[in-house]
Amino acid sequence: MSVIKTTNLTKRFGKFTALDGVNIDLKEGEVYGFIGPNGAGKSTTIRVLLGILKATEGEAKIFGKDAWADAVEIHKRIAYVPGDVNLWPNLTGGEVIDLFVKLRGNNNRGRREELIQMFDLDPTKKSRTYSKGNRQKVALVAAFSSDADLYILDEPTSGLDPLMEQVFQQCVMDAKRAGKSVLLSSHILSEVEKLCDRVGIIRQGKIIETGTLDELRHLTRTNLTIKTKQPLKTLHEIKGVYDIQNKNQEISFQVDTEELDTIIKHVSQFGIVKLESAPPTLEDLFMRHYENKDDTKVGGES
């Protein structure tokens, strides 16, 4: 069953097309990574899904309901965390969390306390005294304290330190194990790689690739570091080899995954002493899509 389904989703602001035929299909119990450079259309898509913006063309459905027309009904079952959280300055963090939890009709006090401890949050302080990271913690505790069916997370770890990022990742995996669905927009590619079942890459308002990480990895390159008994020659002449670097009698380079067999056969003629292979990462994939483009900047609002 599709929890989120957009079909030819298009949003124009005057003559500017922010979203151009975006198709997303998030299944039940799935974590979907939504990535792209600054200005690609990630946050615009999320605002349409939340019923904040109305699509110019196409449709966006959540739980089979129209994201714009049925927004009130949909919001009863979703939790949303933005990348820049604004809180009521005179309320304490604990009061803000309680307010959000009560709005959902959920009173799981034990889960609230557990999350406050996990995120190392002082809930007695006024919100105006919180750092950006602590404001994010309040939003994350409120979201994961609620028994939502869908979590929409737009750069949710912005401002968190690496330890708290790990806590966040644990919360996402707990939600997934409980059969919940997650849409995660993030520029922290290692985070997406750890958490997501499928990934959609958006550029200039269009989804340019979508699929599981394994399906997308064929598009990228494997990193090899090799040391041979005899000088390794003619490597630069072989198809699918890039970015050759010679250092300390070792050669490191990138190779198109589909050419890996040919490369290894060639290299083996020179007597392999050392061979290290690093699997292609989502970052490799991401940078390959945007290399030699003007918009290589990653992250932030879009």
Rank of each mutant, 00 (worst) to 15 (best):
H75S: 10
G33M: 11
A71Y: 14
R47Q: 13
K125C: 03
T56D: 06
D120W: 05
A67R: 01
L99W: 06
A67Y: 05
G58C: 00
K102W: 09
W68E: 00
A69Q: 14
D70Y: 05
Q117N: 14
W88A: 12
D84C: 04
Q117Y: 04
G64S: 10
V101S: 14
R128T: 02
A142L: 02
S131N: 05
I97E: 15
G94L: 09
P123L: 12
N106I: 15
E73G: 00
G110A: 13
F34S: 00
T44A: 00
K65M: 15
G33N: 11
R104K: 15
Y32M: 14
N134R: 02
G33I: 10
E73S: 11
P82W: 08
G41E: 03
V48D: 02
S127M: 01
G94A: 10
N108Q: 08
E59M: 06
N108A: 07
A40N: 09
D84N: 14
V31D: 12
E28V: 04
G110I: 12
V96C: 13
K126G: 02
P82T: 05
E28K: 15
D122Q: 09
N38D: 13
F63P: 02
K137W: 08
R112F: 01
I62H: 08
K76F: 11
A67I: 02
S131G: 12
I52Y: 10
G36V: 03
E28L: 04
I62S: 08
N107K: 09
G41K: 01
E114D: 12
N90E: 13
L91V: 03
G110V: 10
F119E: 01
A139R: 07
E59I: 11
G94E: 09
I74V: 08
R128Q: 13
I74W: 05
E57N: 10
F63Y: 06
K132V: 13
L103M: 14
E95G: 07
G29L: 01
D98S: 15
S43K: 03
K126T: 07
K65G: 03
G51K: 03
I97M: 09
T92H: 09
P37V: 05
L50Q: 12
P37M: 05
S131F: 04
R47N: 15
T129Y: 04
I116N: 02
P82I: 08
G29V: 01
P123F: 11
P82F: 09
G29P: 01
A55Y: 02
L115E: 05
E114S: 08
L91F: 14
K126E: 12
E57P: 03
G105A: 07
K61E: 13
L115V: 01
P37L: 03
E113I: 05
T44P: 00
V81L: 14
G29M: 03
L140S: 10
L91N: 08
I62A: 11
N107A: 07
A142W: 01
R77M: 06
G36H: 09
E73V: 02
I52G: 07
E73N: 04
P123N: 09
E113W: 00
L53H: 15
V72S: 12
T45W: 01
G93E: 07
E95Y: 06
K125S: 10
Q117S: 15
G83F: 10
E95D: 11
F100M: 14
E113N: 13
Y32N: 04
I52E: 14
G105N: 10
S43N: 07
R109V: 12
A139I: 06
T129G: 00
P89G: 09
I35T: 00
I74P: 00
D70K: 15
A142I: 00
A67N: 04
V101H: 12
H75A: 11
